[in-house]
């Protein structure tokens, strides 16, 4: 009995933290969501009202594409960096993970410097072809910003997994006559899948909820976090902001849970 009460004592700090910063605000948010003009039907407004639904679909599509692109970049980079020593490796790795130090706003600002009106790409394009090339404020700009923001996190996760991969697995596959594609398909990627699920889920969740980058770039696009912001501050529709928040939270949480169960299943198998 005494050890049981001691266990309760140990879990107490985390419990208080969860209660204060998750459960209570969520409850408050849920109650708040019910106070909107349409009452608790507001929960489904994100699906029933075209403007909100479009925003959700755009955000989902952007997050999925961002996740896929980030995974592709990070998987290739992780394999290149793992098990390989070359001069400048440390420098390259620190450069690639540099964006970890930036908040989303700064990333957005860098995309503007790159693809905005006075940006590098536009200046070059004007000089070379006399045509404008501005993409910073488009979905593509947002996509670039999200990828830039996510690559370091996913790369570090995948690099750890790639370094754990036994090099003799690849040698064994080669000895059996497998080419580079077959080795990727049958040996390397299956070994990286758990890390890819974890990293991918992290990337997806970040992209779904990213605000800083969106705030700097999404002047004409309503991604869901921007939608919540405008509903809350400009339209002073706290109820709607609350219900969309809960919907966003639920989708992101479901994606994380799915990824974790897939990763666990693959780890158990391997």
């Amino acid at each position: 009995m005494r050890s049981r009460s001691f266990d309760v004592l140990l879990i107490l700090p985390a419990a208080i933290f969860t209660l204060a910063f998750l459960i209570l605000p969520l409850a408050r948010l849920t109650v708040e969501a019910g106070t909107g003009p349409s009452g608790f039907a507001g929960f489904f407004a994100i699906l029933t009202e075209a403007r909100y639904r479009n925003s959700l679909l755009v955000t989902l599509a952007l997050s999925i594409v961002t996740t896929l692109a980030t995974l592709a970049l990070a998987t290739i980079a992780a394999q290149t960096l793992a098990h390989r020593k070359f001069p400048g490796r440390g420098l390259l790795l620190s450069l690639m993970t540099f964006p970890l130090a930036f908040p989303g706003v700064v990333v957005g600002f860098m995309i503007i410097l790159f693809g905005g009106r006075l940006g590098l790409v536009n200046s070059l394009s004007m000089a070379a072809f006399g045509t404008r090339a501005i993409f910073a404020y488009s979905l593509f700009g947002l996509f670039l910003g999200y990828v830039y923001f996510s690559v370091p996190r996913v790369l570090l996760t995948l690099l750890a997994a790639a370094e754990k991969l036994d090099p003799s697995l690849v040698e064994a596959a080669r000895s059996l006559g497998a080419g580079p594609l077959a080795i990727q398909r049958d040996v390397v990627l299956p070994a990286l899948f758990p890390a890819m699920y974890t990293g991918g889920a992290l990337c997806f969740a970040t992209a779904m909820g990213a605000f800083g980058t969106a705030f700097t770039l999404a002047t004409s696009i309503d991604v869901v976090p921007m939608l919540i912001y405008t509903e809350f501050t400009l339209a002073t529709n706290a109820g709607m902001a609350a219900s969309i928040s809960i919907a966003l939270g639920a989708i992101t949480w479901a994606a994380l849970a799915l990824a974790r169960s897939r990763a666990m299943r693959d780890t158990k198998g391997g």
Partner: peptide, 14 residues
Amino acid sequence: NVGMVFQSYALFPN
């Protein structure tokens, strides 16, 4: 076309 057996066996875990 050589058959190899490794110390770690290097069997494909999946």
